[in-house]
Simulated assay, not measured.
Amino acid sequence: MSTRPFQSFLHSPELVRLAKQAAEQRQLEKLWRSALPAGFAGLSEAVGIEGECLTVSTRSAAVASKLRQMEARLVLQLNDKGLKINAIRCRIQVERHTHEKIKPPKNLNISPKALATIQAAAEQLPPSPLREALDALVAKRIRNPASKD
């Protein structure tokens, strides 16, 4: 099997551009975190720079308000570290409640016909990790038909 198509994908202009953007974003976030007081590190994230304005995402209006109070000092610190900005804009990004993130469980039951088909397919495979996994799945479902993997 040739790795040539994969290698050409790794060196594609789009992937190179995305890798560069990701590296710039990581560097921006690193600079932002280094300028913040210790208690604020996990409460905000650097989003990007538009012109000479750094956009920051915060978790609450209270954090945004405190960052606005520290804006002059933060701008000076970031300028000293090589980031040429003259303002910081806070954007409040409220997190969703945990009950909104939970998805209902999927119905993972396997019908007897499907289980028999899986078992037949596993028996035709040579000894391999795939065959072992299919055998284990079938054995588990036969022991406990309502189990979820």
Rank of each mutant, 00 (worst) to 15 (best):
S2W: 08
F6C: 07
D149H: 13
A121C: 12
L18Q: 15
Q21H: 09
D135W: 09
L36F: 05
T117R: 07
N109V: 05
T55A: 13
E52Q: 14
L36R: 00
E24S: 12
V47W: 15
P104H: 07
L31Y: 06
R17A: 14
T98H: 09
A46S: 07
S8V: 10
F6T: 06
N109F: 02
T58W: 00
P126Q: 12
L43K: 06
V94E: 10
L36Q: 00
R59A: 09
K148I: 15
L36H: 02
E14S: 14
I142P: 00
S57D: 09
T3M: 14
R59W: 13
T58A: 02
Q77K: 14
L18A: 09
A72G: 07
Q119P: 04
E29S: 13
E71Y: 03
A22V: 05
C90Q: 15
P129L: 02
T55E: 12
F6Y: 08
K148W: 03
N107Q: 07
Q27C: 03
G39Y: 10
L15M: 10
P13I: 05
R4A: 08
L74N: 03
N144S: 11
V63H: 08
L115C: 01
D135M: 11
I110A: 06
S2Q: 12
A87Q: 09
K140D: 11
E45L: 12
